[in-house]
Write a protein that binds this DNA or RNA. Sequence first.
DNA 1: CTGTATCCAAACCGATACTG
DNA 2: CAGTATCGGTTTGGATACAG
Lengths: 120, 120
Amino acid sequence: MALKLRRSRAAPPPPHCPLTECMALLGGAWTPNVIWYLAAGPRRFGELRRDIPKISAKMLSARLQELVRRGVATRTVMPTSPPTAEYALTALGEELLPAIRAIVRVGERLKDVERRTRRA
Amino acid sequence: MALKLRRSRAAPPPPHCPLTECMALLGGAWTPNVIWYLAAGPRRFGELRRDIPKISAKMLSARLQELVRRGVATRTVMPTSPPTAEYALTALGEELLPAIRAIVRVGERLKDVERRTRRA
DNA sequence: CTGTATCCAAACCGATACTG
DNA sequence: CAGTATCGGTTTGGATACAG
């Protein structure tokens, strides 16, 4: 007798935790962009501000601090005058890139579909 | 004469748009979880509430509407009594899964590292 | 140049109550 | 069962001004 199998149980693995964990990091408004620009090589505070024109200094500062705290990026102050600071991804930070690339890819698809359905 | 090549330009591709586009969708507090549970097959409203115990009806409703509007999920009302509604991922919705899996994977790594550095 | 501090507006989300 | 309406607290992020 064929019971209603599909209804019987929820999705197999309960991945809330790592998912939420990572979204807490990536969820910040500008975080993925910051990581993206850091991915191309070490970058200074002011450079990042120019890379992401609409970000405020406060947000950039907050995001960078969080990335450093999490071990995703490093901050190096150069003993120049005026002082300059350089941020770079750590090895752990580079492990985030596949996820970000995957997000970019589906973002493009979402945009495509949105454009097409608006026209229809 | 070796100029400072690295400083000359920003990261090659400017992916703000698709990235932000997708994060606007995935950024919602519960969205990734909802998509995850939908990935296992069609699911009803009440089932999802049980899958994600701490979500409020309001949020679940809002998220599902957004997913439907974006073409990521479908909503089918069954002509039963009492009425039941069934949500399912579309083909586009399934394209989000690789990104979510990538996020889950790095989430695990982040947790690992966090644990280890706390001990050190 | 590299940030931090403060204030303020908007978004987000939960709890509760109510409808079809 | 499957939602919607409303209220209120918390969080988020932008603008501006200021500091090392």
